[in-house]
């Protein structure tokens, strides 16, 4: 099995799983989430584990895993204030009520 290796314009090797087609699929997934019960959706592929969303969550709905990435520790506490949406530098989390 041959792995497809591409180079982008900057000359960086991008892996097969990073090709645009694959990303398009993942982005559609964040728009139409599979887990409808969770009040907060986290897109782990784009998350850089900076901890801003956890630090500014006013109700303590979000917690931090041992590797630094966020997770929903108390789903009932989410007020859909959308603080995490606006403060996430990587566009990797949404706490919006409507989906």
């Amino acid at each position: 099995m041959s792995k497809k290796v591409e180079k982008d314009r900057m000359g960086m090797i991008i892996r097969e799983e990073d090709t645009p087609e694959k990303m398009e699929v993942e982005i559609t997934e964040i728009k139409a989430p599979c887990d409808k019960d969770s009040p907060v959706l986290i897109y782990y592929n784009w998350c850089k584990k900076c901890g801003i969303c956890v630090a500014f969550c006013p109700t303590g709905c979000l917690g931090r895993k041992s590797d630094g990435s966020p997770y929903v520790q108390a789903p009932e506490k989410c007020t859909h204030c959308e603080n995490c949406d606006r403060l996430c530098p990587d566009f990797a989390i949404t706490g919006a009520k409507e989906r």
Binding site: I27, I30, K31, W46, D85, C88, A92, A96, E98
Partner: peptide, 18 residues
């Protein structure tokens, strides 16, 4: 929805995360 608006305007053929 803040995050969805942002995703609409991003160039999805670029390498993400940025």
């Amino acid at each position: 929805i803040p995050q969805r608006i942002v995703h609409e305007y991003l160039r999805h053929d670029k390498k993400f995360p940025h």
